[in-house]
């Protein structure tokens, strides 16, 4: 189980551009490093990240081994309606995890 810190404004005016930030706890192991025993440490990275706003996909990203541990993603969208932002990411071990945040649009 990993953690994520998502930052979404609690309230926004309709039509306002809002910034959404997410930091996900993940080792982002590149697969190029060797451990103490000289064996290669298997790659373990987040492959895909998706953000949905009221059920509609507004942002997605593919991640690669060069991205640092605990990736930080920031992006913007237009506040259209009150609802839930969901964040979903999948890593090399096939684990999919989610986080969510509420926004009230006035």
């Amino acid at each position: 189980m990993t953690r994520a810190l998502v930052n979404v404004p609690k309230t926004a005016a309709r039509g306002e551009i809002i910034e959404i930030r997410a930091m996900i706890q993940h080792p982002m192991e590149t697969g190029y490093r060797e451990g103490l025993n000289g064996e290669r440490i298997p790659r373990h990275i987040i492959k895909r990240f998706v953000c949905k706003y009221a059920g509609e996909e507004i942002f997605s990203a593919e991640l690669f081994p060069a991205i640092a541990a605990n990736p930080f993603l920031a992006f913007t969208t237009i506040a259209t309606e009150s609802g839930t932002l969901t964040f979903e990411w999948t890593d090399d071990r096939g684990e999919t995890q989610t986080a969510s945040a509420e926004i009230t649009v006035t």
Partner: peptide, 13 residues
Amino acid sequence: DDTSNPGMFAVLE
């Protein structure tokens, strides 16, 4: 910024 400081994960844990 606590939302970009990865050390905060350890604080939460």
